[in-house]
Design a protein around this nucleic acid. Sequence first.
DNA 1: GCAAAAATGAGGTACGTTAATCATACGATG
DNA 2: CATCGTATGATTAACGTACCTCATTTTTGC
Lengths: 342, 342
Amino acid sequence: MSRPTIHDVARVAGVSLSTVDRVLNGRVGVREGTQLRVAEAMRTLGYERNVAAANLSRRRQYRLRFFLPSGSNSFMRGLEDRVRERMAVAGRDSTVIEVTTVPPFDAPALAAELRGLCADAVDGVAIVATDATAIRVAVQDLRARGIAVVTLVSDLPSSERQHFVGIDNVQAGRTAASLLGRFCRWRPGRIALVAGSMLVRDHVERRLGFEQVLRAEFPDQAIGATIEGLDDQDIVEERLRTILAEDPGITGIYSFGAGNRGVARAVSGLSPDRRPAVVVHELTHYSRDALLDGVFDAVIHQDDAREVDVAIRTLRALADGESPDGAAERIGVEVFLRDNLP
Amino acid sequence: MSRPTIHDVARVAGVSLSTVDRVLNGRVGVREGTQLRVAEAMRTLGYERNVAAANLSRRRQYRLRFFLPSGSNSFMRGLEDRVRERMAVAGRDSTVIEVTTVPPFDAPALAAELRGLCADAVDGVAIVATDATAIRVAVQDLRARGIAVVTLVSDLPSSERQHFVGIDNVQAGRTAASLLGRFCRWRPGRIALVAGSMLVRDHVERRLGFEQVLRAEFPDQAIGATIEGLDDQDIVEERLRTILAEDPGITGIYSFGAGNRGVARAVSGLSPDRRPAVVVHELTHYSRDALLDGVFDAVIHQDDAREVDVAIRTLRALADGESPDGAAERIGVEVFLRDNLP
DNA sequence: GCAAAAATGAGGTACGTTAATCATACGATG
DNA sequence: CATCGTATGATTAACGTACCTCATTTTTGC
């Protein structure tokens, strides 16, 4: 009827509660044979530890720390809001969350913060990683001190981070190409690219995926001018205006960095029948409005609320020494048009 | 530091533990003034009941029951699989889930099943509703007996169900039009519709949303022939073949019922350059393959795993007399291309 | 075969809450 | 003033687990 308890396990294994406890919590001083008998009893009974009761008893707290880039990037500020929303209710799951913002793209600053963490004050850390050796080393350090580490939004491959919570950016680029190629299918032309900075790994990956698919599947769309807008809306606007004026054969725009407001302003200056199809990244207040106004056609998005949830669940699982459920916790590349906005 | 307990509340309110318990659990025999003092103390302390400890103490079990249509509909079978996956691990959250399948579109059968439920054996019910008065009455009955009710996938408006877990089908239809309109933008023509049965509320809503957007925003695409395929792949294939042969001006196909395999077979018979853009519903094994083969262009999807999760969380919250978090638990209309498949 | 060491058992307390019993204090009523 | 009903307090045993101490048994090494 109800789930078996350690009492049942003890009875079936023919040992005392103490011994079951010792086995269950990996304490020393149990003969191997006894361990096997207990394990066997757990298996036959289908015993699963009651985590709620265990956490209650040991007054377990999961102390998690999020490191996010500071600055005005809308997506990051939204992400921070999501984390703070979770902070407010995390107590329900005996979880304490703290947020620290560090200057963006400043690897030494982040590394210094990470070095300052103490294993008996923090159980797990989520970082929006900058791809730098200093961070890799800092992560290795954290792991050595027994602190769980996941990367969030931006990954740090070949580091010792245990998990990455975010989208596959190559896939995101492929999806953008798949959309734009179809949007422009019966109208050959050129597609302009708007990058933030090609120094950021995400953007390189997005571009890679985009080119792969556009070249292979939509040969009548060429890749036109590429703007490096440095995530600055004014720069983006000005350069994009110039390009659009010079080249009337631009059928589409793919913007995969920040600076969406600049794209929107440049495009909305054109008469509707000359407007290219526009695909950008991240659903924010601004890109949402542009979708509704018909200035953008599609937005490629990652669900920040879900990313935060998954990061928390993953860190909790890792802190308990479990391996997180990768498939179920996957973050997908979402596509929004004006008609399926939340 | 750590969360306040009922002990703290008692101390601050200047009452005993017993009184706090009486207030907290709505028992009788507490003067109004005392109740207010306790409530005030809870507010100042920011007390939140430790649900895990409470459930442990009262040996609370959430007994939930899912009613799903039987039959070969891939989406429904997938949904059932998701429910069964949750069943297997639900014990961790002191939740017991059962699944009952009932013949599809058979309102009396479902109503009879619902009537048979006993309030002291079930706390909450999730039903894939057929739009019928018999079901509305049965739902009213369940609610009167204190059983929580949510509708899943297909809603039952103006019934006493407390929540609907599923997508907005009008929005789904709008999204399909928004995609197809853009896919066919530079090539005027007609879009063929493939329905399952217009007797099902979902399909009516999808068509409604589709027509709204296509008429308003894509005037160079007309709505062509409509097939009522009764969710039978063979019927769909045959009729669609005929239509495609007769009318070379078909630029797109929107299929919003089951029978995707029929659509795929009919379309893949055409030479690639004559193929219309195809948008269908529900990501299954088959539609996935068709996407990968380039036979379908996009799939409108609802995340069945998430729907099941949300239904469970919602029913648990309702069983505790809480109101579920609507915004966070929203099910969105998802868009899949071959490039952002999970 | 004996001492030392290792393995196991027995029992208690705690975690935060529920739920019950029993005792007591308080007011109002007659 | 005695009585009764209501409000409140005090205490206790659960729930399933963790973790501690102390006693007892078994094994090991010599």
